[in-house]
Design a protein around this nucleic acid. Sequence first.
RNA 1: GCAGCCGUAGCUCAAUUGGAUAGAGCAUCUGACUACGGAUCAGAAGGUUUGGGGUUCGACUCCCUACGGCUGCGCCA
Length: 590
Amino acid sequence: MDLPFHVASHLDTALRAAGSRLGLTDRGFQPEVRVADPAHGDFQANGALAFAKKEKLHPRALAQQVVDTLEATVRDQFDISLAGPGFINFRLKPATLASWLGQFDSEEHLRSGAATARSGQKWIVDYSSPNTAKQMHVGHLRSAVIGEALCRLLAFSGAHVIRDNHIGDWGTQFGKLIWAYKQAAQKDRDALDHALAREPLEEFERLYKAGNHAAEADAAIMDAARAELVKLQDGDAENRAIWQHINDVSLAAFQQIYDQLGIKFDVTLGESFYNDKVDRIYAELTKIGLAQESDGALVVFHPEHPRFAKQPFIIRKKDGASNYASTDLATVLYRHEHFQIDGAAYVIDFRQSDHMDQLFLTARKWFAATGRKLPQLEHVDFGTVLGEDNKPLKTRSGENIRLRALLDEARERAYQLVSEKSADFPEAERRAIADVVGVASVQYADLSQNRSSDYVFTWDKMISLDGNTAAYLLYAVARIRSIFRKANLDAAQPPVAGATPPETATELALARKLVQFADAVQLATNQLRPHFLCLYLFELAGAYSAFYAADKVIVDDPAVRARRLLLCHRTLIVLETGLHLLGLRTLARM
RNA sequence: GCAGCCGUAGCUCAAUUGGAUAGAGCAUCUGACUACGGAUCAGAAGGUUUGGGGUUCGACUCCCUACGGCUGCGCCA
């Protein structure tokens, strides 16, 4: 009897069927299946409690009735018991565990099993989104890391995912920058070209600072910078070329970071792309009466809202220029019309919650008034990366820490550690391992906690490799691969014929954990919170380590050996699949 | 001032959104057979979930209130 990938949904379906045979489903019976505390079972159904309360029934008697009405196959697959006021507990029988493990025997099969959940859906994930002409810093880390994990999770559950880097490539900063560029070129063209050839983005950053400084000190320079901006906006060929060069250089530098984090965007549609699409927004919002003039600007109020009744959503400044509210509205429309998305996830700092709330509220009314179907819009917010002083992480001199420097340091620290732990490995291999461990540690530290809160960035905790860290998980992978290597077996084609169902306490605990992979992925994806998957992988690695310590794998008894090799192999593919879903690379040894 | 988020073990964090005895890791303490990697495993100890009130079969979770912290609030994105 085959089981589907997602065992909890299988139980949910069976319980609904039982409920409907009893005439409960029409009255609103919901099974409420979830993963249970191992002390009680593998899965539990809590729905009888809420339903009995609503219908003034005896909850335990109701639960018993539902259990008695379950189809026979389900009762063959699980040990079922009632507990407490009316919880229904399900424990997978060993043969059922063996059946699931037999079916899901490769990353491809895990993938195809999971891919039914969101097949046919199209999602756009808006993440990273740095400003051009500046280097990326720690403030850009979380959006990139969380966003990429969400892309992979959504794709794994079957959605068509579009990765969109909504870069800030069109702002007032370009006036000052172009002005400073021209000044520098006039002063010493060769020196400028030389500096730009060597460190292009760093040089543009220096030029911007110089321009900003000069403009603040001298109103005439400010006017000159503004004039350069107007020329750029009017399509002046020279300024346009400088602007293009800045963006090219910026994107090339960003890609060096993205390569380390496993990120590749499908589209890079920044603010400049929407520049000519905002007039339509003004016209539509004015026409339906959503937008109004206020102090010379075009704004949207939401009278029913406690804050936004008074706090305006400014969609056109009084000087007539667009801002990010206008381009964000144009972006929603473009994603609807051009990509025809079902959902969009905006992976953006919690400090922009007001803006996102206003954007979504405005879009909802606007789409409703114009008969469009609004996609599911999600603000995937996240907290700040703090230093050990509980303040936003900065360098000692108070500067933002460059992402490039941060990743360099992570790899270097990992190298020190790998060299200490695996001194016998050749240097080149230690370097390669450290590159993976270092970057993975940074990614995992970010992903493994609830994104909503701030988190404290501590090198020692992150790379110390104890507890819930990337290294602990990578180590578990390396140990499994080591078993296959030592036994001269192919980890991709393990000899598992004749494997018997799990038997010892640690085998059973590991097998149960493996089956729950589906729930962890579903939870992380539906809540758009990768830390649920991290927690699961940590627990899986723990269950494996306990099994490894208790049960020897390479034993003489062929049935025992086959089933333990099977457990090793399934743990390997689930761990690797899970880590890849988070955007981490894995290792054969470390 | 108005609004949003938050406050859980000494420290860093969980708790499937109202479910069973609030769980992990670090740090501390006690143990582990020459077994495939000890970057490991088994165990102990650690809590009035910031204080107070309320809602109900049941509250870290929802409501009210006080205190403490972070954040946002008309033309930067």
